[in-house]
Every structure is written in C-alpha cells, then in structure tokens.
C-alpha cells in the first residue's frame, strides 16, 4: 500500500456524495499538483500521475457498456469508478433511487440487478455489462401502481420518503424470495433498509399486505 502523507493537507475524511464525478477527480488532482508537487504525484496511481490539463477531461478512460434499465436497452460510456447508483442518478437521470450513506449501510440505493436486490452504491457499473436493472421507476405499469407501492400508501409506510424507493425495491425482492411469511420474518429480511423516520410498523404491514395479495 502506498503511503498516504499527501492526504493530510487535503483533510479528506469520510467520503461525501458525488466523489465519482470526473470534475471532482480533476480538481483533486489539480490540488495535489499545487499542494504536494512531485512527491504527491509519485504516490498517486499511474493514471492520476499524468499531468492534468486544466481544461481536459479526467484521465480515466471510459468503457462502453450495455444495460437494460426498466425494460429499455441503454448503451452508455462509463468511467470505471462510477457505481451503478451514480450511473442511474447522474447519467440516466433516474433519481428515484436514493443515495443515503454511499457505504452499503442504509439500503436507500437498493435496486434489482438481474432480479436480485443489491445496494447499488457498492457495485461498479462497468462490472454489469449486459445486466437487467429494475429501479423504483420501473415498478408501476403506466398509471397503475405496483401492489407494494399501493400498500405503502395504504399503510403509511413512510414519512419523509427518502428511504422509500429502497424499502419498496427491497420489499419486492423480499416477497419474491419467499421471506415475507410473518411480521418477524419481514423485520429480519427487511433489516438491510434503515428508516430514519422509523416508519417500520407501516413498512412491515405494507410488505405483509402486498405479500398476501401477490
């Protein structure tokens, strides 16, 4: 592992959101050049060590991938650093999927990849060439809500709503997996989704109700 003495002056602690944006990467490298000079650059990976011109794009080469998102085929260029979450939100403008912790710890970013629920913040888009992704935007059929969406409204399964897209995507999978068999089972199998408003009783009731209907 490389020594990280050039990080102290930057004062970078826990990551904030959006750190995969190419602009941020570029400005960080510019700062490195100004603050640390040659020593810092020597410690940085090869791609970052290339001189960063002030107007050029980030040095990381992009990769072309294909995804099927909510049923429609998309072809796009991704920076290998981009998470599935950032591609959904920033490249495809599907902002229903939320970024909470960006560390796998809250479940707000839950989507289905090839039918399985995952936290989209902890997986790179470049690893999913050819995958089918379903997000909260892909659940309703036209104006007709998915039964679990309807159940969330009926049972007051949210307050602020920030965790709700992740809760619903996780709930859809929980039901499909056959894990929504009792309130206790639902609590356990929905525990990867944190609700800061503590709407848990409504969430459990909604998942149980939708499981009974589907």
């Amino acid at each position: 592992m490389t020594k990280s003495n050039h990080d102290a002056p930057l004062g970078k602690g826990r990551s904030s959101s959006g750190d995969e944006e190419p602009q941020r990467g570029l400005s960080r490298r510019s700062i490195l050049q100004m603050a640390g000079g040659a020593a810092s650059l020597a410690a940085a990976p090869a791609a970052a060590a290339q001189p960063a011109s002030s107007d050029g794009p980030a040095t990381a080469p992009t990769t072309r991938i294909r995804l099927v998102v909510n049923g429609s085929a998309r072809e796009l260029e991704v920076d290998p650093r981009q998470s599935v979450l950032d591609v959904l939100r920033e490249t495809l403008d599907l902002t229903g999927t939320k970024k909470g912790c960006n560390q796998g710890a809250c479940g707000a970013c839950t989507v289905l990849i090839n039918g399985r629920r995952v936290t989209s913040c902890l997986t790179l888009a470049v690893m999913h060439d050819g995958a089918e992704i379903t997000t909260i935007e892909g659940l309703a059929r036209g104006d007709e809500l998915h039964p679990l969406q309807a159940a969330f409204i009926e049972h007051d399964g949210f307050q602020c709503g920030f965790c709700t897209p992740g809760q619903i995507m996780s709930g859809v999978a929980c039901i499909a997996e056959g894990h929504a068999t009792s309130p206790e089972q639902i609590q356990f199998w929905m525990s990867g989704n944190i609700c800061r408003c503590a709407a848990y009783p409504g969430i459990v009731a909604a998942v149980a109700d939708a499981a009974g209907r589907t």
Partner: peptide, 26 residues
Amino acid sequence: YIAGGTTLIDLMRDEVERPERLVDIN
C-alpha cells in the same frame, strides 16, 4: 481481484484502498 466489491469499493471510495488495477473475476 474484485469479486462482490462490497469491501473493496467502499474502501476505495474513501481512498483507504488505492489499487491501480482491478481484475474482475466474476
């Protein structure tokens, strides 16, 4: 190597891990 990425990507984002090359073994 990168498999699920749930440890590695998390720590790369915080720049605790700084691999220059990733091999996707999936």
